[in-house]
Design a binder for these strands. Structure first.
Lengths: 216, 216, 216, 216
DNA sequence: TGATAACCGAGACGGTACGTCAGGTCTTCGC
DNA sequence: GCGAAGACCTGACGTACCGTCTCGGTTATCA
């Protein structure tokens, strides 16, 4: 059903698995920057063309190799207590971003997405973090009857630990219980809607000085 | 007096400026991924060795070329009203991250830092976002007498828009006035300090399933 | 059957030919010193790696490109008259060393061999001059019943014009007929075997003053 | 008196000596190919410009560093017996070419001269081998009353061992006494002058097949 | 059962950036 | 002005990976 006709030799599942395992191992061993399609193929004992046939670049391989684990690591069972569920999710999130292999892959991909549109599209197609948080955030929104949108609430919840870790700070300094409590309180008191125009910043425009560096 | 001895031909300031201009232009034209040391040197009309003599990789050149602009674009004049200053800062931050050239450079570097220790060290050495926010956050902490540390408060302020933009969402959906208000309220009611052990997550441990993908 | 396994894409014969043609052209156009692997690859319209894959330096390419021609240019048909054959060989040798492209390549390689062990080994592996002379020298040795070894006789025949040309003298001053006659005469009257110990020179030892220049 | 005006700082004799010593040492340590102007300057503890000021390339430095030694090593005291003098000269020549440092320098320069016109001119300007042999050859010519020119006789004497050693054969196989005897005999019976036209070889023309290699 | 087709591994192909090195020039300071 | 130091631009070095291609060979389906 995947293949149009079914004619010809079917895709080798063992080759696929070998590639995904190889990219996983290599990410840990040599890091993302030193990850190459060539290296992946050799490590997997697979022809280079075989890799290119199914994935177009290392980001795609890595994404496929880590996405399932990522979803699993970020899934939390929901209970009756939204605040407890929030804390559990934040704990999972912090561990994921700061300690997990799949999280390392995610951080690398998120980084690559900042300057590679193809990777950005890849990540956008399946918003792992947003989706994983959706259930618990939605529950919290419902129980609080907040005026904040799902998107706003998600950023509010994920943002602080996300910035904390991606900016290189130690994950130990994060108090997930306190963050969950603050999040709930903010949902209850979101404050007034402000002016909707961020395109025209009120004060010090950043766009004014367009030159980057090398000022005389 | 800059150089240790003053002996030898002094560094060419024009070459330095040409390199910084070139990297700036090239980032806009071809993007970070296609940015190469070779390309920078040729665009600047400078020997390749000259680039390597003063910067060890493209991240360093880019950092030097954009850091000054970044600081400038993120600096806000402080007033008597912390809440107004907070909004002004958030406006500058959103514009910086989503529209500015220097911000594009910063996003690229931040991404690279996720899988390149050298770049991570470079960014840590001068925590541009944290430093730029320090003044306004400190003022807010003083005026509110909060129990939150500077680090916690900074993540609370920067985190939401930071995640919003880096995860590929449109910057238009950010209400900086509302975020500033929420931030002030959270400073005033930070909630109880929780258990200090994030290393042992309460629920679904992410570390358990170490394999990334390709389950047999 | 040529390749060990026959696996993988076979070597491109057109690429090989293009490289050999390119090195030939370039030697004439820019000379040996300005001959570079990069230049060869570009002139041949071939990837640099492809050149390195089959030859490890410019000397090897040049050798392969010129060896066949050299052998051809130095081959002489033998007749009943050894003296006539000797002259014919010497004529071919003088023309080869002083006028032929392949000879220019040979002179360059012979020179390089004086300070590059790899090139020396390359030339030793197929002693073009010695081999080309072997037939005619052997015939002369047989007809004269000389006591001189093949090696001694070869040096005796080739040495004078070889030194003449390599030391920069005009090839016009060489009388090959006379040289052939002298050679035959010496074969017939080789003189007495001398003391076999050249390692201990009788008189002015050169090894005594080991310092080269810059006497204080 | 060397300098036109005597103005300014005079040339440093110690710098000159340091350079010559450095090039000598380096030739032995790293070989001719790895000899560089940069390396010479650094080894001599001298500025690069200083080396370039007095010598235009490594061949010139090496020539100046080795020429005096070469002449010394190749000078033989003459006696009443030309044949004894010839053997003494040949012994010195063989030792020089095969064992001496200065000889290694000479071989390298002679090789370079095959594809570098500047080096060729340098060597031609002071024909070390020819000049060193001139006295003893001239004596032999006088005593034999030969019809051979000095040039022809010189090639006859030097050629065989020169070719033997430069083509990579062991110097041990050279019987200088026998060579001297053969040389004397040939001077006495030079044979008839042949046709003076080496430009038009009688038999297998080498120039005909101009293509080098890659024949189909 | 045999043709057809898509897969597989291996590895060579033309490109291009890497980071280093040497060449030869220049600009500074100190003697 | 000489000599050291060292930065400058140029350009080749040999390596690595890119993505494509061409081999021999291996499964599958379909006629």
């Amino acid at each position: 059903m995947v293949d149009g006709s079914g004619r010809g030799r079917p895709r080798s599942e063992s080759a696929r698995a070998a590639v995904l395992h190889a990219v996983d191992d290599l990410l840990v061993e040599v890091g993302y920057a030193a990850l190459t399609m060539k290296g992946i193929a050799e490590r997997a004992g697979v022809g280079r063309q075989t890799v290119y046939r199914w994935w177009s670049n290392k980001a795609e391989v890595l994404y496929e190799a880590s996405a399932i684990d990522a979803r699993h690591e970020l899934s939390v069972s929901s209970s009756d207590d939204p605040r407890k569920d929030l804390k559990a999710y934040l704990d999972a999130l912090v561990t994921f971003l700061s300690r997990s292999h799949a999280g390392a892959a995610y951080r690398a991909l998120m980084g690559e997405a900042q300057h590679d549109a193809a990777v950005a599209a890849l990540l956008t197609s399946r918003d792992i973090l947003g989706e994983s948080a959706a259930e618990v955030v939605e529950a919290a929104r419902k129980s609080s009857g907040t005026a904040l949108s799902l998107e706003q609430a998600t950023a509010l919840l994920i943002g602080p630990p996300f910035f904390h870790i991606l900016s290189g700070r130690s994950a130990d300094g994060i108090d997930t219980g306190q963050l969950a409590e603050q999040f709930m309180r903010t949902l209850n008191h979101p404050g007034a809607r402000g002016a909707p125009a961020p395109g025209a910043p009120g004060a010090e425009g950043a766009e004014g000085a367009e030159g980057v560096g090398a000022a005389p």
